[in-house]
Simulated scan of single mutants.
Amino acid sequence: MKKRIKKTYICKDIKDYTIDETILTDYHPKVGDVGIFEIIKIGKHKTVEDEDKRNARIIACDLMMAAFGNRYATAQFEGYVPDKCNEELHILGAGGIVGVVHSMHYNYIDIGPTTIRLVGLVKDNWGNVMNTKLNQQSNIASFTGAAAAETKVILSVGSSMDSGKTTSAAYMVNGLKNAGYKVAYIKLTGTAYTKDCDFNYDLGADITADFSDFGFPSTYLCEESELLDLYESLLQKVITIRPDYTVMEIADGLYQRETIMLLTNPRFKETVHSVIFSAGDSLAAINGSNNLTSWGLTPFVLSGLFTASPLLINEVKSNTMLPVLNIEELSANGVEILHKFENKGNLLKAL
């Protein structure tokens, strides 16, 4: 192939490869398998994030290196790794995740996904198809909970996709940093794209990490044990700087498969220091915080998109005793609220 190949972000660590164009018809791809794809028709994705985190424009006939993966995104696409690759494929995520769209949000019905086709499989020097997850497998640690004991893990969870949890995390990071703490940010679940890590770094995080650092195109349909090992591995990566606090975001809403799997796991919950809950409206804020409380993860603060509306804030405050902060207040007063929560917890332990 003489055309320049645009290497997407999820494939940034793929080196020393060859391209095999001979076995495409019968090949059954797995999550993380790497291929070279030709852009057929531009749809939702007009750019992909490249290995340097630059948004690279794509047009028909371009070639890109990407990885097969699944995606769960209620405001965008539901998509899966296909049984075979000799069919129309789609870009599922800008970080370089490809598969076949199963459903999409109404906003994209007329636009549709960007369609692609596989033109070659990326192989190593021994003739094996290269895989982003297998490429990092030796760096994955088994879950023990020990890494979480080296920092205080603040969860940022939300009622749904686009409920404001990344923004809440970033402004809490900012507040902690302004208070003189060393702070890490982790995105544990989601679909590979660096925007959330970059945002939290811009607002003060000393170090950031996410699941794609260990080769995961996404975490959708991962096993529970796999998620726990990934959690341990990401914590081990960030505690090298000895952060006082680690703000960790979990993607999507409380009822999403991986989210509820983690939030109801006793071993995982034991490692959590505190919780920020973000919601899009008052009903979601109240019901979501009640759900979290029933799981033993009562939030120390409520935030998210609903805090843009004074009326919604009043509705929430009329139905809960939990503190409600908008993003500016999270930065300015979030640490004070957190310390009150910590002191209350210490008092209960003493009693």
Rank of each mutant, 00 (worst) to 15 (best):
Q137G: 10
Q137N: 10
M104P: 00
G158R: 01
V173Q: 01
E88C: 15
H102G: 15
V100E: 12
K84I: 14
Y106W: 13
T166P: 04
A141T: 08
E150C: 12
I140Y: 03
N135G: 11
I116W: 01
V100L: 12
T167W: 02
S168T: 06
N107H: 12
K187V: 05
I109A: 08
K182F: 09
K84E: 15
T115P: 02
N131Q: 09
Y171A: 04
V153Y: 00
A75L: 15
W126V: 14
N139D: 10
T189K: 03
P82W: 12
I186C: 03
I154T: 00
H102Y: 15
M172E: 02
G96T: 09
Y185M: 05
I111Q: 12
I186N: 01
L155E: 00
L176Q: 01
Y108K: 06
A141H: 10
M104L: 09
I97A: 11
H90D: 14
S156P: 03
T144D: 04
N70V: 13
Y181A: 07
G79R: 13
V129H: 03
M172F: 04
P82N: 13
G120M: 03
S142Q: 11
T166D: 06
K133F: 07
V101K: 04
L121G: 00
T151Q: 04
D124G: 07
Y80A: 12
F77K: 09
G69T: 15
T167S: 08
K152E: 07
Y181V: 05
T114D: 02
E78D: 15
I186P: 00
G164K: 00
S160R: 08
G96C: 10
L188K: 02
N178G: 09
I154N: 00
S138R: 11
N135P: 05
A149C: 13
A146R: 06
D162S: 15
I154G: 00
K152P: 03
S142N: 10
A148C: 09
A169K: 01
V173A: 01
N128D: 10
N125Q: 11
K187E: 07
M130L: 10
K182N: 10
L188A: 04
G112M: 03
A146V: 06
Y171R: 04
A73K: 11
S168G: 09
A179I: 03
F77E: 08
A147Q: 02
V100M: 13
V101S: 06
A149Y: 09
A179Q: 06
K152L: 04
F143V: 02
K177M: 05
G127K: 07
H90I: 14
M104S: 04
G112A: 05
K123T: 04
Q137F: 13
E150Y: 12
L176P: 00
E88W: 14
G120A: 06
K177V: 08
V157N: 01
T166G: 06
K152A: 05
S156Q: 03
T166I: 08
N178T: 14
S142P: 07
V173T: 03
E88L: 12
L121Y: 02
